[in-house]
Computed example of a mutant assay.
Amino acid sequence: MPEGHSVHRIARQFDRNFVGRPVLASSPQGRFVEGAALLDGREAVSVRAVGKQMFLAFEDDLWLRVHLGMYGAWDFAGEIIIDPTIASSNGRIGHTNQRGTIVEDEPILDSAGENSLTSIGAPRRTRVHVRMSEQTTGLPEDDGEWPPPVVGQVRLRLLTEVTCADLRGPTACELQSPDQVAATIAKLGPDPLVDDIAEGEERFTALVRRKPTPIGLLLMDQTVVSGIGNVYRAELLYRARLDPHTPGRDVPEEVVRGLWRDWVRLLSIGVETGQMMTMDDLDPDAWRAAMASRDDRHWVYHRTGLPCRTCGTAIVMEEMGARKLYWCPYCQR
């Protein structure tokens, strides 16, 4: 499932390439025909991401709500203009001209399934696949045909004169009124990229500190905090040296606040780089290796049975909240 950093990056992709333009909408799969008909020909006027959900506004107060869920994906094709606010930590993600041609240093490619640093701004006529953590996949390059042929089960296709976005397999794809959007967002926990950070900290701390639920479940509860998924949960808990089974109300207040502040930092890094980097103080070579390989990027996630990077104890994996939780039973005592 895409975590918060990916959804914010996808929203920025829409902001750069769809907002302010009339959009043709269709449902090749046939499961969103009526909704697509209402969107067809309208101008996209704004976009926002909150946690794992994206809201794309059209003329006449019509909003498209998309939650990718476990299997959803956006495929972008055509001329893609990169968001200039997104760059790698060394400022070398590259840039595009107004026609979408990319200019950059040699990209850092990720063989572990997450995106390269170029995935947010694709070269002209190259299809970019945004799934899970935004990986660029082996979808074939377009052969010049426009619009590009429909591949697979496309719930919704949004098309401008030069850019195409295909949505597949989302958990939610629906139209909402402004009041419905507000009600949906009101049910979500604070998002550091949406809410006032200080107010978000107070709200998050108050919610956690009054609940008997294990902190490992609370971090995945989108009504408590928005955007945290399985990777960030495991890494945040390890970085705090916190036992995942500790009831929220038993976690010291300063630790809860530390979790929020660490989430603010890690989310920012994720949006900037496109990858869930949770290791600190890496030298340039180690940083580049981590950008290219998940194995070098995380403390505990996906490291079942491997020695803890700090103490050497074997990392444990267990089921918590129907998802795999990775943690160190020594460091997180």
Rank of each mutant, 00 (worst) to 15 (best):
H8G: 05
R9C: 14
A11L: 09
R12S: 08
Q13L: 10
D15P: 03
R16N: 07
P22C: 14
S27V: 02
S27L: 06
R31K: 01
V33L: 11
G35K: 02
A36D: 04
A37V: 03
L39Q: 08
L39N: 07
R42N: 10
V47W: 10
G51N: 02
L62V: 14
L68N: 06
G72H: 02
I80Y: 04
D83V: 09
A87H: 14
G100W: 02
D110H: 01
A112Q: 00
G113M: 00
S119D: 00
S119T: 00
E141G: 03
E145D: 10
P149N: 07
G152Y: 01
G169S: 14
Q180W: 05
V181D: 09
L188W: 12
P190D: 12
I197F: 10
G200Q: 00
L207V: 14
P212H: 05
I215Y: 01
L217E: 10
L217N: 15
Q222L: 07
V224K: 08
R239E: 13
R239W: 06
R241D: 15
P244K: 07
V255G: 08
R257Y: 13
R261E: 14
T278W: 01
T278M: 04
L282S: 08
D283Y: 12
P284A: 04
A292V: 08
Y301N: 07
G305E: 04
C308S: 05
C311S: 08
T313M: 15
L325H: 11
Y326P: 08
P329D: 05
